[in-house]
């Protein structure tokens, strides 16, 4: 699949950067004919993935998060990578209402899954986590 456009961002694992990440994700998505609602969905999904890296991956400690946004002919892909503590049980973490914190809803992965067309998670303890999310773009008819 040919890459039409790509941006890679490296951010520190700070809560203030979660907003910057999702706004960047929305700006990148704006080059495709998405509806405003679809752009909002992308913002939530990216916000969840980056929040997870800050909260769970690095446990609020300093670290680096890499966000790669790629536009292909028929899809938009977001890859969020951290080098934090990793997820012990991915299947368990993906279940709605699973959270290691009582004040949290444990809906992070559920939102990523509902709002994107594909969600792939790869993680290794003490190595880090990779989250890959894909949103299909509408196939535009040629004139």
């Amino acid at each position: 699949m040919a890459i039409k456009n790509q941006i890679t961002m490296r951010i520190r694992s700070l809560s203030e950067n979660v907003g910057i990440a999702r706004v960047s994700a929305a700006a990148f998505a704006a080059q495709v004919d998405f509806t405003l609602n679809e752009i909002e969905e992308i913002k939530v999904a990216v916000s969840e993935a980056v929040s997870n890296a800050v909260i769970h991956g690095y446990e609020y400690q300093d670290g680096e998060i890499e966000i790669t946004m790629t536009l292909y002919e028929d899809q938009l892909e977001y890859i969020i990578v951290d080098h934090g503590k990793g997820i012990a049980d991915i299947a368990l973490a993906r279940q709605p209402s699973y959270s290691s914190d009582p004040e949290r809803m444990g809906l992070g992965f559920a939102f990523m899954e509902s709002f994107m067309d594909e969600l792939y998670i790869e993680s290794e303890i003490n190595k880090g986590t990779l989250v890959r999310m894909v949103k299909k773009t509408l196939l535009t008819t040629e004139h």
Partner: peptide
């Protein structure tokens, strides 16, 4: 204008 699961968590709490 925006809420994610962290914001919802506070509301739930």
């Amino acid at each position: 204008k925006f809420i994610d699961s962290s914001g919802l968590g506070v509301l739930l709490g």
